[in-house]
Nucleic acid binder design. Structure first.
Ligand SMILES: [Mn+2]
Ligand SMILES: [Mn+2]
Ligand SMILES: [Zn+2]
Ligand SMILES: [Zn+2]
Lengths: 137, 137
DNA sequence: AAGTAAGTGCAAAGCCTTCGCAATTAGTGT
DNA sequence: ACACTAATTGCGAAGGCTTTGCACTTACTT
């Protein structure tokens, strides 16, 4: 153990596809599987979409990436190293605003006090309207 | 105008299917389209799933029902007459806890102040763990 | 270098949701 | 009551997105 590569350290085999998927998630931030695949294809055109899906799942299982749901749209993946954050998703223009989890602490605490609920704000986005969209017709 | 039926009042034709879909949404609370269809079939076995989808959309357009997303799972519909509420969705057991929107006011206000974001907490659920699931392995 | 299990590509299948279209039906006006 | 018209329905097919089965390939182990 204490290998020289982060993927091997997690007990995973080191394949070009897997490395590229991880690199794409890190580079793109909040990318859909499709977007990850497109990015990987720039370097490795032959990669199959199902390989991307499988690697995203694998990488999530070992904690290197995480997913979140923005609502209507599909799943999005981001690297685990980014600080934990909630997502504010504008339903008009699709903009994603990241909110540090600290800024939500008193809210999640109130849900714990009031409902015994342990909130995971990172998993699902919060819907609404961004400022500019709100000020439009 | 000022017809004798709520559906006609909204400018909609009154069909057995439509009435039953609305009744099912009201009876079930947070039901998936599939669940609505099952419920309707008890009275009207011939109803087609696409008719359910279309009526849910139509009823939502006139404001009689609303939908929300619980995350991994699909869309859920509830009647508009229920007080506006956020959904806390336990990711272990699926339980939905309803939180009156008032209880979230200071949080949404802070998002407005901090990010100019106008939050619609009713649209997407908040993920997490309920008390009993949290206290399990 | 050989062996083995993990990983990949490909095609097919699975969900859930939407669409096109012909047949039916609700609401309107005679 | 009857006919007219447009909305609505049922049905089957099509669409997205994601998962699966399986034979082939490849990374790691000895
Ligand atoms: Mn929605
Ligand atoms: Mn999820
Ligand atoms: Zn916006
Ligand atoms: Zn639970």
């Amino acid at each position: 153990m204490a290998d020289q590569h982060e993927l091997r350290d997690k007990g995973l085999r080191l394949t070009p596809q897997r490395e590229l998927v991880l690199a794409a998630v890190r580079a793109l931030e909040h990318a859909t599987p499709e977007e990850v695949a497109e990015k990987v294809k720039l370097t490795h055109p032959g990669i199959n979409l199902s390989t991307v899906y499988r690697n995203l799942e694998t990488l999530e299982n070992v904690g290197l990436v995480q997913h979140s749901h923005l609502g209507h749209g599909g799943v999005r993946y981001h690297a685990s190293t980014e600080e934990i954050h909630a997502h504010l998703n504008c339903e008009s223009c699709g903009t994603i605003i990241e909110v540090p989890i600290d800024a939500t602490a008193s809210f999640t605490q109130s849900l714990l006090d009031g409902y015994g609920f342990h909130t995971d704000l990172a998993h699902l986005a919060i819907a609404g309207r961004c400022e500019s969209c709100f000020n439009k017709p």
